[in-house]
Computed example of a mutant assay.
Amino acid sequence: MNFRRVIVLDLASLGVGECSDANRFNSVGADTLGHIAVHDGDDFQLPTLNRLGLGNIRYSDPVVGLAPADDPIGFFGKIRSKSRDNSTLSGLREMFDFQSLTRTTSVIDSIVGLLGVHSILISNYQSYLSNQNEAEVIPVNTDDAGFEQLHQQVVAPNNGLLYFRTMGLQESNASDDLKGSVDALKLVDQHLARLMRELYSTDLLIITASFANDSTLDVTPTREYLPLIAYTSSSPEGKALGIRRTLADIGATIGEIFGLDISNESIGKSFLGELK
């Protein structure tokens, strides 16, 4: 597929169940999405995310209100952080950094410096994002403001990378506000319905999370699998992407789309070839 732009929506702090090494991080029993859903009960509905395949990620252990879709329109799976530093920013570094033929750098800066396309980051202050010297950083303080910026950027015919890190869910999870977490996810779902209508046929939308934080556990963040959904309007039928071993697979996919020279020493493996 001839993608010209990648939009990454980072639902920061959304985990989808304890990871295989959860015991090393005091995270046995962690399930951010599941516990949020149970709190809302029968009222928990995320129709857009579910059409994309969010419920299919947990087909063997369904989440309340998120039964697997019969015909998901997104490519779905779950992904994990490989880093031993389980922090709220380590996932970002793992997602975007890669080993080039000469040094460790990020796909964010590389596609601008080498290819001359845009990298636009929409976020509140995060040191990793702010240190991307070639990118344009658009500061926002709320999800409503962030999504409005996202919509404005998506309808503009620019090529490159567009990244938005949501704030509402991570703030609610950090303050043990399950009702706020429900509301934050429903807001995301509503904006996603609009966003999907705005995408160009050469856009690839990737929905994931850079870390998990189950507010029902005492540890922060929690070690969980993270959602991975890829959607393009040019492919109406989705399928499973399986379990990805590292967030670096996202950066590797972006790198392949834009033709970056990524060393074999990089840990990420592109899933671009599976999006068909």
Rank of each mutant, 00 (worst) to 15 (best):
Gln126Trp: 00
Phe3Ser: 02
Tyr163Gly: 13
Ala30Met: 10
Thr232Asp: 02
Phe76Met: 01
Pro139Gly: 08
Tyr163Glu: 07
Thr216Asn: 05
Asp31Pro: 01
Leu272Ile: 11
Val182Asp: 05
Ser234Val: 03
Thr105Ala: 03
Arg24Ile: 03
Val140Glu: 07
Leu260Cys: 08
Ser127Thr: 12
Leu187Glu: 12
Val8His: 01
Ser106Asn: 08
Gly116Tyr: 10
Thr102Asn: 03
Thr104Phe: 00
Glu18Arg: 12
Pro62Gln: 08
Thr220Lys: 12
Leu101Ala: 07
Ile207Leu: 12
Asp218Phe: 15
Leu92Lys: 04
Ser13Cys: 13
Ala12Cys: 11
Ile250Ala: 02
Leu275Trp: 05
Asn133Gln: 10
Leu205Cys: 06
Lys269Thr: 13
Val112Ser: 01
Met196Phe: 03
Glu265Pro: 03
Ser13Ala: 13
Tyr128Ser: 09
Leu129Asn: 01
Leu46Glu: 06
Leu205Tyr: 10
Phe76Gln: 02
Asp249Glu: 04
Ala240Gln: 12
Ser87Trp: 08
Ile254Asn: 03
Gly53Asp: 02
Val117Trp: 00
Gly116Arg: 08
Gly34Met: 06
Thr48Tyr: 07
Ser87Glu: 01
Thr32Ile: 01
Leu11Thr: 02
Ser263Asp: 15
Ser181Phe: 11
Ser100Gly: 10
Ser13Pro: 04
Ser233Arg: 10
His151Tyr: 13
Gly242Met: 04
Asn131Cys: 10
Ile57Leu: 05
Gln190Gly: 07
Val8Glu: 03
Gly17Phe: 15
Ala212Trp: 11
Ser20Asn: 11
Leu121Tyr: 02
Ala145Glu: 15
Thr220Arg: 14
Leu66Lys: 09
Gly251Lys: 05
Ser215Val: 11
Leu228Ile: 10
Tyr231Glu: 06
His118Pro: 02
Asn2Pro: 09
Gln190Met: 08
Leu187His: 14
Asn131Gln: 12
Gly160Thr: 03
Arg4Gly: 15
Ser20Gln: 11
Ser60Gln: 10
Ser181Ala: 15
Ser270Lys: 01
Asn158Pro: 02
Met1Ile: 02
Met95Glu: 00
Thr102Ala: 08
Leu169Phe: 15
Gln132Phe: 01
Tyr225Phe: 14
Ile250Arg: 00
Phe76Asn: 00
